[in-house]
């Protein structure tokens, strides 16, 4: 079990570092391409409420 826990902690730290490095290294052009691709999508199509995103899906989407 100790080994499993150590692996879980190492995995969590690796994911944390990877996500941070990815966020830091992403070039502005990639964000621009993403913005272009999602320009016509409503915010509700991009993500949902709360922990996945936006308050909008609660009432702005008319649900």
């Amino acid at each position: 079990m100790k080994l499993v826990l150590a692996i879980a902690c190492a995995l969590c730290l690796t994911l944390t570092g990877t996500l941070f490095a990815f966020s830091q290294a992403t070039p502005g052009e990639s964000y621009a391409a993403y913005a272009d691709a999602t320009r016509n999508a409503t915010s509700c199509e991009l993500s949902s409420c709360g922990c996945l995103g936006l308050r909008c899906s609660c009432f702005d989407c008319g649900k």
Binding site: Q24, Y31, Y34, C51
Partner: peptide
């Protein structure tokens, strides 16, 4: 980590080197 992936629970605006940008729609 799931929150970071989803973009919720984000931090305050900062000029520090740790600052990261979230994409359009986030």
């Amino acid at each position: 980590l799931g929150c970071f992936f989803g973009g919720c629970c984000f931090g305050a605006v900062t000029d520090s080197p740790l600052g990261i940008r979230f994409p359009a729609g986030s």
